[in-house]
């Protein structure tokens, strides 16, 4: 009997998982598979402010520090091989290929994702979503869609800012502090960074992460159990699940892009 119970538990977990994916997919479909309308644009701009602009300081400062730390650690290792000139490509490639998209997505999940979940969860528990429904306004369209698009637009922009700032942070440490020649820093860096391989892939990664993180955050908020405990739980779930999703997808994408 015990064994049968376990099998049943496994089955139930699987069913819940599939149902979750299904309803998350339906939510997203309901939100974005619509004709855009003129009234939606101000809502989108407002969400760009909430999701994008308000994350900018965090992204800027983190990018700067991560670039600087990367350069300092890299310098200490590279100087042992007498190849400290390669600091530029090391910093730039790590940022473009991995740290830029991934760290930005993780920070975004913590800053904007959790805020989205909490906001929508609060709207649900204070019956604002029901209230929209009763006013014959589709909450998916009014609430979910602008936030989704704002997330999808913001995260790649933030990742670009993060990466660019990080490279300049590396430049500050490598050139200004450790005295690598500025000319060779940039020229070796430029010789090894490639538009298609590195920058386009950086953008693709951050776009995928943007969709996933925003989607999870919105879904967690939309499905919240409408009480304070439910909201705090959903917020935690957003951060945990979207971080895991970002890291797992990052491996998958890296294998596809650079695995050959």
């Amino acid at each position: 009997m015990n064994l049968l119970d376990r099998v049943a538990n496994l089955g139930r977990a699987a069913i819940e998982l599939v149902t979750g994916f299904g309803s998350a997919g339906l939510m997203l479909w309901g939100a974005i598979a619509r004709k855009p309308r003129a009234k939606g644009f101000p809502l989108f701009v407002k969400q760009l402010y909430v999701v994008g602009v308000q994350s900018m300081v965090l992204i800027f400062v983190s990018g700067l520090f991560i670039g600087m730390v990367l350069a300092l650690q890299g310098y200490n290792i590279l100087v042992g091989f007498g190849t400290e000139e390669s600091l530029g490509p090391m910093v730039a490639l790590s940022l473009l290929r991995e740290l830029g998209p991934v760290v930005t997505a993780l920070l975004f999940a913590g800053r904007a994702g959790s805020a989205l979940t909490a906001e929508i969860g609060l709207m649900k528990s204070t019956e604002q979503l029901s209230s929209l429904e009763m006013m014959a306004i589709d909450p998916l369209r009014q609430i979910i869609a602008p936030r989704f698009w704002a997330g999808v637009v913001s995260l790649p922009l933030l990742a670009l800012i993060f990466t660019a700032v990080g490279i300049y942070g590396g430049h500050i440490v490598g050139v200004e502090w450790k005295g690598i020649d500025s000319g060779s820093f940039w020229s070796i860096l430029q010789a090894s960074v490639e538009w298609r391989q590195d920058i386009v892939n950086c953008l693709i990664k951050s776009l995928v992460f943007a969709v996933v993180v925003t989607w999870i955050a919105l879904y967690r908020g939309y499905q919240v159990i409408p009480n304070p405990e439910g909201i705090s739980k959903a917020t935690t779930q957003t951060v945990v699940q979207s971080s895991l999703a970002v890291l797992a997808l990052d491996f998958l994408l890296t294998a596809l892009m650079f695995g050959r």
Partner: peptide, 14 residues
């Protein structure tokens, strides 16, 4: 600033 970062990456870095 997002676009500026993009241009920096494209023209200055790559």
């Amino acid at each position: 600033s997002g676009l500026a970062a993009f241009l920096v990456l494209v023209f200055n870095v790559a």
